[in-house]
Structures are given as C-alpha cells and as structure tokens.
Amino acid sequence: MSSRHRIRVTVNGRAYERDVQGRRLLVDFLRHDLGLYGTHVGCEQGVCGACTVLLDGQVVKSCLMLAPQADGRTLTTVEGLAGRGELHPVQEAFREAHGLQCGYCTPGFLLSAVALADRGVVLEGKSLRAELAGNLCRCTGYQNIVEAVERYLRQTVGSRRG
C-alpha cells in the first residue's frame, strides 16, 4: 500500500492543502490535483524537462520529485508567470522570436529562462545552450529559443544592471 500524506504547498502565490499518496509524482499533483495543466509530462525519466517548475526559485524536474517532498515548499509554474495579466517579458520574448511551435516544451523553457535571469547571468550562444540542455524541444531546432532567451536575458538582467 502506498502511504498517504497531508501536504501544504504554495503554488504561484496560492496556498493549497491536499492529501496525496506517497508515490504520487509532483507533476501529477500539480496537473491533476491542482488543475495546473501548463506543466507538461514528456518522459517521466528526467530527460526532457517539459515538467520543469521552480522549487523555491530553482528549476527542477517535477517528474523526479514525489508530491510529499514538496510539503512546506514554494512552487512556481508557467501559470504563475503572468497570471491573467499582460504576458511576462520572457513570454513576450518567445513570441517575438518565434521561440515556440507546438508549445508543449515551452513552459519548461520559460521557467529555465526565468531562473537564469534570477541568477543574474547574461549568457549567449554556446554557454546559453549548455544551460538549456535540460529541456528538449523537437520542433524549433532550438535556434529561436536560444534567440528568445538571449533577448530576454539582455533586457531583464541587462537593464537591472544598467
């Protein structure tokens, strides 16, 4: 039998309290228990990064965490970037650069980009590509994703410094 646990998490600024099985994956909890379907499942093997979310501000793959591990933690999913308001600058950059096609991997890339900006690093080219290696895309060939993130980092981190 899988054990059951009462957990409290804050997701996108909102507090939730739920009962979960010990074996429940964090990504399933976010999607099917909280209805936050913007976080996607691509492999459940920790490779594709479609399930990337921010855990206390750091990117993690939510298919590689058990839901009860998130007890007491703060999470951000793609739904938390802009809420219902104007697009977040990272979303705007992806739209401008045509950094998405089918859009399935996109939430993971957006959160990876936001975490980079939060670390205050402006990367480009190969070093940026290395930082994005935890997110797979099959549509774009990455070129416009890299361009979108470069653009976003320049704007966000660059202006913060300037």
Partner: peptide
C-alpha cells in the same frame, strides 16, 4: 506573430492529457 502563441505561452494550451 502567431495566433497560437498566447495560449501556449501561458500554459493555457489544452493538450490531450489536459
């Protein structure tokens, strides 16, 4: 600019498992 993008960027696309 693509009409599809806004919903997908917001995580509001609706894929099969959603």
């Amino acid at each position: 600019k693509r009409k599809e993008d806004e919903r997908l960027l917001r995580g509001a696309g609706r894929f099969l498992d959603d």
